[in-house]
Structure formats: structure tokens, C-alpha cells
Amino acid sequence: MYGLSKAQRYSARLQFQNESRLMTTKLIMLEYVFVGIAFLCAVGIVLFYNAKKNINGNAEFSSCRNPNCVRCVQYQQVIIRAYERYQQLSKIHKENKDSTGRIHKSLHRNIVHSNGSSEQLLNHYSEPNPLVFDLKELNLNDLYDPSTTDQFTDDVRVLQDNKDKICSDFHRINRPQYQHLWLKNDTPFGQWSVFHLINQGKTVVNNIKHCEKTFEIISGLQNIMKRNVFGNVVFSVINPGTVISTHYGPTNIRIRCHLGLITVDECTLTVSGKQRKWKEGECLLFNDAFPHGVTHAGKEGDSSRCVLIVDLWHPDISLQERNSIDYIFSPVNR
């Protein structure tokens, strides 16, 4: 800088300082960019890993955020209240104690081992694991053939013979003006919508008035479970791209019956690792105490899968046991 005037030296120094500051700013910005990219990569890896676990059925117990859900939130309150009501029932009907012995044993065992269902991991893929009430000494099958299970034959025939009437009710409530009556269940991908006629043992009056034919039909079923917290009747719609993670139901005392209304080949039910597809106008029966999940592999624009779900009593439960369970597990504020 020798030979330069004082003004020139000052200008050169100022330019050097400005260039240094600009270089520092660029380096800081570049550092932020690298940190941001690293963060996004980490988030992407986590999301991909969790999604892969859900799809493969290796994720933790699938739960929802509904504060009234018996399976996911209120399991401890339900089992404790049930034990208290069993004690009341025993005092009222002392002579029936022998016939409800396995209910008492199962309730006691459930209270002792209740440790927070939402934190349980999936067991072996083929084993049942009811998360609220596990009734012992039941003959358990994951899937049921309605044509060879005598107790379900008549109920299945009634549902299948009235498929058109039930489907007519479904198409009515599936119109835009009734969408506010549908609920959205939590799923890792896609959308699963439900329209309850009976929700955890409670009749949904506002919904029934739009489905009077269907409610009349299901009310006449011999084995319908409708007076305790485990009983539901619900229209269920699964949109293309939806994944319902592998999970367990709250009890082993019910058999879920799905009447196919609108079925698609891309939608699959998996129970204990066995894949099944719905057929229009036919019933599919399984015990949801076994690990199960649903995947609709269709693309946007494909048809949704639509069924009517009806909970039926397990065939090994006597009429006296049914009445006792209805009292013990009666809905709160019915």
C-alpha cells in the first residue's frame, strides 16, 4: 500500500473490511444451511423408520387420542369399575357365583396385570392379547367360517339377505350433508371414517334416525353385543392409501363381523399374519383380540372400502355370562 495516498489507503482498508465481513456472513449462512439439511435428513430418517415399522406391523401398540376410547385411554378405569360392579352383582345374586367364576378369576387377573395398554408392544404375531378384559378358558380362533359355526349362521344370513337395505342406508349417510356425523379414526396414513349406530354399548340416537332399516335389522340379531362397552355397530370407510397399523382389540369375548358393502381388491385385512379380502354382500368374521391391521394399497381416485361392522358374542359364552358381563361392563352414563 506504499505509494498510495492516505485517502486511497483508507478506501482499500474499508474495502478489505467489507469483504471480510461478507465472507464471514457467507460462511455463517453456509453453516446454517448445512445444519438445516442435517436436521431435515434426521427428521426424514425418523419418519421413514416409523412409517416402515407401521407398515410391517412391528410398531408399538396402535392407539388413538379419543378420551372416551375404552381400548386406548380408559382401560384401567373400565376394569376397576367392572371389578366393583362384579362384587355388587355377587351380593345381589349369590346363587350365580359358580356360573360366573371364570369372570371373577379373569377380572382379578386383569387388575393385577394392568400396566398401561398404550405402552404394550405387539406380542408374537399369531397370539391374542386383549388389552382390557381377557376372559380365560375360551376356545380362541383368529378367523371364523360363518358357514361352519352354527351360532353365527342365522345372524350372518340375516345380514347378507338384507345387504341391499343396509347399503341403501349407507349411501344416504355418505352424502355431503351427513359428513358432520362421521368420525375420523387415527391412522398413520390415509383416512378411516366411521359412523356409529352403537358406540361402546351406547345407542347413538342422532345417527340411528338416518339408518332406521339397518338398526331394525341388527336389533333382531341373536348374538349382537350391544349392552356393554365392548359392543359396537358401525359403518366403516377406508380410503385409498390408508394404513391401519397392526393392533389388538380390547377383549376376546367378541367376534367382529364385517358385512362387505363396497369392496376393492386393493384393500386387505391381516389377522395373525393371514390375509383376507372382503367380498360384497358377504360377512367376514374374526376375533380382534388377535393382532390385526388393514392396508388399502389403492391410489387416489380408486374406490374406498366400505363395510358394516357388528360385534357378536363369542360362541363359548353362556347366556348367564352374557348378562353378567353386560352388567359388569355396562356403559357409563348410558
Rank of each mutant, 00 (worst) to 15 (best):
S304M: 03
G281F: 07
F48G: 10
S236A: 12
I55A: 13
Q151D: 15
Q200R: 06
T24Y: 05
N174C: 04
V33Q: 15
S318A: 08
T242W: 05
K202T: 14
G44T: 05
A59S: 15
T148V: 13
L284P: 01
Y2S: 10
D265C: 11
F16L: 14
P67R: 01
D316S: 14
V156G: 04
A7L: 12
S219Y: 03
L285N: 02
N110Q: 08
E216A: 15
S219C: 07
M23H: 12
R102H: 11
G281H: 05
H296M: 04
Q275G: 14
F39G: 06
S90K: 15
D150Y: 07
I28L: 12
K53Y: 09
A297P: 05
H108F: 13
K97V: 09
R13Q: 06
R227A: 12
V35S: 10
I37D: 01
Q87V: 15
V229H: 09
Q200E: 15
I92F: 13
C211V: 00
F286N: 02
D186P: 10
S90N: 11
D150L: 12
C72D: 05
Q160D: 03
V310L: 04
K184S: 11
E31F: 12
H171Q: 14
Q88R: 11
S245P: 02
W192K: 02
I103H: 07
P291W: 03
T270N: 14
T148L: 10
L221E: 01
N123Q: 09
C267G: 10
S99E: 15
D161F: 10
S193F: 09
L22S: 12
V112R: 09
N110C: 15
M225P: 01
N199V: 00
Y144T: 00
N58V: 08
K52H: 13
R65M: 14
T149E: 14
I55C: 05
I208C: 03
K97W: 12
H314N: 05
D311S: 04
S106W: 00
N110T: 04
S304W: 03
H314T: 05
L143Q: 07
Q179K: 05
E212F: 00
T270K: 13
N185C: 11
R85V: 08
N206D: 15
N185A: 13
L159R: 02
K279N: 14
R276Y: 14
S118Y: 12
I28K: 06
D134K: 07
V294M: 08
N129F: 11
L159D: 03
L135D: 03
L121R: 09
H292Y: 13
P128H: 08
Y144N: 01
N115E: 11
R109C: 10
L221C: 06
G249L: 01
G298N: 03
E300F: 13
G57I: 02
L261E: 00
S114A: 15
I238R: 00
Q87F: 11
H247E: 04
G241S: 07
I208S: 03
P176F: 04
K165T: 07
R322V: 10
F170D: 00
K163N: 12
P146H: 01
R172V: 00
D142Y: 01
